[in-house]
């Protein structure tokens, strides 16, 4: 069982995933999009590294997009 936190919410599954599979296939974010970025355990994970980065038990992943701000 792999348990992680995505955007503050717990997720769990049994098979192995990489970050690309998690973000695009499981969470349905748009592929090839420049409208969001991914942080793995608080650090930027560039898009080109998603396929080669395995999701490990206990990882904290944040998916961030633009919002209005002052």
């Amino acid at each position: 069982m792999i348990e992680i936190i995505v955007n503050g919410k717990s997720m769990a599954w049994t098979s192995e995933k990489n970050v690309y599979t998690l973000i695009i296939d499981t969470l349905n974010y748009p592929a090839e999009s420049s409208r969001f970025v991914v942080a793995l355990n608080g650090e930027l994970l560039p898009a080109e590294q998603w396929p080669s980065t395995r999701v490990n038990n206990g990882d904290i992943i944040d998916v961030l997009g633009a919002i209005t701000g002052g």
């Binding site: 969470l27 633009a66 701000g69």
Partner: peptide
């Protein structure tokens, strides 16, 4: 100015 936050698909 803009900012960034957690966002779902």
């Amino acid at each position: 100015t803009m900012s960034l936050r957690r966002q779902t698909a």
